[in-house]
Amino acid sequence: MPRTALDRRSTYRVLSAFVLLTLTAGAVTACAGDDATHEEAASPGAVASGTSRLHMITHDGHRLAFHVTQGDDRTIVLDSGGGEDSSYWKDLVPELHADTGATVITYDRAGLGKSDVVPGPWQVESAVGDLESGLRQLGVTKNVTLVSHSQAGEIAAYFAKDNPRMLSGAVLVDANLPQFFTDEEIPRLVAATAPQVEAAKKDPEKPENRQLISTADGFVAAHRGFHKVAWPDAVPATVMVSEKTPLDGSPVDARRWRDAAASFVQAGPGRTLVTAEGSSHDVPKDRPDLVLEEIEDMVAPQQ
């Protein structure tokens, strides 16, 4: 069946949402003492009434919303894809908490959800610094299972490189991986996303458009840098790939996406490749059962 104009716009939307996030790797400057004050409040409409609390963390002059469902000393951190805030995980959090007994944390990256907007271009080192500082201010320094969907895979790669001892494992859910961003692929992505970038500029205050605009500049150099990032061998990882991939409209790019996942898994020990049968790029919504299973398998047993 021929693809409609709406189908094509949807494909461009997904492309722009998952590829435009990173700049070159930089040193993470956040530490436990940076702006180490935060507020706590009950989270209205929380994922499970009475179990989730909103912590407003201050880091580098801006406030970030972290939602914590308290459990034991193991922590599951759920990081959403491009343009999505912490509410993306609202259906999975109570099940993860009930099944594992672990602490479950979701958060809003800068400019999304309840977190402050940070002017200027998106910088991955800032995103990594926000996450690291937030976790340290919450007292989380080890036994973390990082779950990263789509665009958040880039934050995961830099975070794991800089903080391997904090992580007990990661589940990368149809996530951006360094192996995908080759010199052949980057220009194709730039061309595919150009119409969406221009469309976003017509409504720049919309959160997902604001993120897209702020990260479009410098995309080529940023992803050439990301391509060189190596995942640490000490951190086991499960790589989940959707059956359709986020590039379902382009067989060439979809194949490269799958090949990149396979290459990532083969590049180091403790890595597993899982295909989410019947799923679009939106794996946590299409196959929540499989996502829950893989996260629960990765969570370190309580000591």
Rank of each mutant, 00 (worst) to 15 (best):
Q196T: 13
N176F: 08
E243R: 02
V274L: 04
E185G: 07
R256F: 07
L64T: 01
L6D: 01
Q123K: 02
I213R: 13
Q70K: 15
A276K: 06
I213K: 11
D108M: 05
Y158E: 11
A27S: 14
K90G: 02
G218H: 14
P2Q: 12
N209A: 08
E205N: 09
Q151T: 03
E132M: 12
D99F: 07
T145K: 11
W122Y: 03
K114R: 15
A216F: 08
G249F: 04
P187N: 10
H281I: 01
Q137R: 12
R53E: 09
S126W: 08
H62E: 03
N176W: 03
D35M: 10
L20D: 03
A276E: 11
D34G: 12
A98L: 06
A5K: 07
P204S: 15
L146V: 04
G129L: 09
E184G: 13
V118N: 07
A276W: 08
R255K: 15
G71Y: 09
R9A: 11
G120H: 14
R3A: 14
A110D: 14
G26C: 11
V197T: 08
R109D: 10
E208I: 07
A170R: 05
P178Q: 13
Q151I: 08
V173I: 13
L212T: 03
A230Q: 07
G45L: 15
P121G: 11
V235Q: 02
Q266N: 00
K206W: 06
W257F: 03
V147G: 02
D91C: 04
A199F: 07
P246E: 07
G134T: 13
A36F: 05
R53K: 15
P232I: 00
P2I: 14
K228D: 15
V239C: 04
D108Y: 00
A267W: 14
E205Y: 05
R256C: 08
E243C: 06
T272A: 08
A36Q: 00
T145H: 09
W89F: 12
D162K: 07
A222C: 01
E294N: 09
K90M: 14
Q302W: 09
V190E: 12
L54N: 03
M240A: 02
S263D: 14
S80I: 01
K114N: 08
A42H: 00
G129W: 03
A17E: 04
A110F: 06
E125T: 11
A65W: 08
D203Y: 05
Q70R: 15
A261D: 00
D282G: 01
A156M: 14
E293R: 10
A32G: 11
L23W: 03
P2S: 12
D91A: 13
P288D: 06
S52G: 02
S115V: 02
Q123T: 08
A48G: 13
V147F: 03
Q266A: 12
T141D: 08
L96T: 04
G169W: 07
G249W: 03
A157E: 05
K161R: 14
F66R: 06
L292A: 11
L292C: 05
E95F: 04
W89Y: 10
A5T: 05
S280T: 12
A300V: 12
V229W: 01
L54K: 15
G71Q: 13
D116A: 01
R109S: 10
P164I: 15
A42C: 11
